[in-house]
Design a protein around this nucleic acid. Structure first.
Lengths: 146, 146
DNA sequence: GCAGTAAGTTCCAAAAAAGAACCCGAAGGC
DNA sequence: GCCTTCGGGTTCTTTTTTGGAACTTACTGC
């Protein structure tokens, strides 16, 4: 199976990965959520080569995750912003961070945490059903097509 | 930045991706959650080359996500099972599936859904705080080190 | 008119993945 | 005994992707 063919797979994992399954893409998106918008800021923040960065930004724009907008006419300058589709990736990033902090911790760095912006309370992210609030765990659910 | 160096990054996104950020790894894990355990079953299910599959399984074992256990002495035969650390990746996979179904849908296939195994009710996975139940969204939270 | 800046491109070398064939140690059929 | 099959890999060779650095374009400020 080639990478390009993934986007037309019926499996939703494969379709998701066709957009964000690449080595750099989620790191680019992490920066987007941190407020990074410009090419050179991504580049210095990530240490990615300009070549690969240009390609990833183009793909993310093509898939509708980022929007490329002109913020200066002369000289032409662009910035990249998350679309609604892009912001909807947030739970994936938070789940990844939570997992990494718990199971792949860094030896020295202080723990990385999420807090409620209003109250400052520590948050403990967990996946539940929107209606019942029941936790979503492998042994409690079935996955499949309707 | 080289890929191998990612595992010692302080950023939790980078550390998480050092384990699951690869093209194939999450597809292998998808199969694990579906109950696939044997080398050849992964290979035919994924269409991955045997070479790359052997490498991914080895890495996943090394990082403690999968456990390789002998189920036959002669000839020696192994199977791969999720550890607790591996099962803890479930929210990432569910978040990815949910995002893909909503924003990257397949033209023809019936929708892919999660159901409560006991009641059969449709589930709508959402990330919330374990204590308060408040949804975790970019504009409501801050992310950083303690 | 020279240096600096933002956003890329281009070129070449190195690393990783694809694809296919091959290997090993049983076990089963005949 | 000999041949084939099966599970679980390893070894090739060829493409594709990355990495690294230099070059381009269109301004601005000094």
């Amino acid at each position: 199976m080639k990478w390009k063919e993934l986007e037309h797979e019926t499996c939703p994992v494969a379709r998701g990965l066709s957009v964000v399954g690449d080595r750099w893409t989620l790191l680019v998106l992490r920066d987007c959520f941190r407020g990074v918008k410009r090419f050179d800021d991504f580049q210095t923040s990530l240490g990615i080569t300009r070549h690969v960065l240009a390609d990833r930004l183009k793909r993310l724009e093509e898939t509708g995750v980022l929007e490329r907008r002109l913020y200066s006419e002369a000289p032409p300058r662009h910035e990249y912003r998350l679309t609604d589709k892009g912001r909807a990736l947030y739970p994936i990033l938070v789940s990844l961070v939570t997992w990494a902090e718990q199971h792949q911790p860094h030896a020295e760095a202080a723990p990385f945490v999420y807090r409620d912006r209003a109250t400052g309370d520590l948050l403990d992210p967990i996946l539940v059903d929107r209606i019942t609030g029941a936790p979503i765990e492998p042994h409690r659910v079935t996955a499949g097509r309707d």
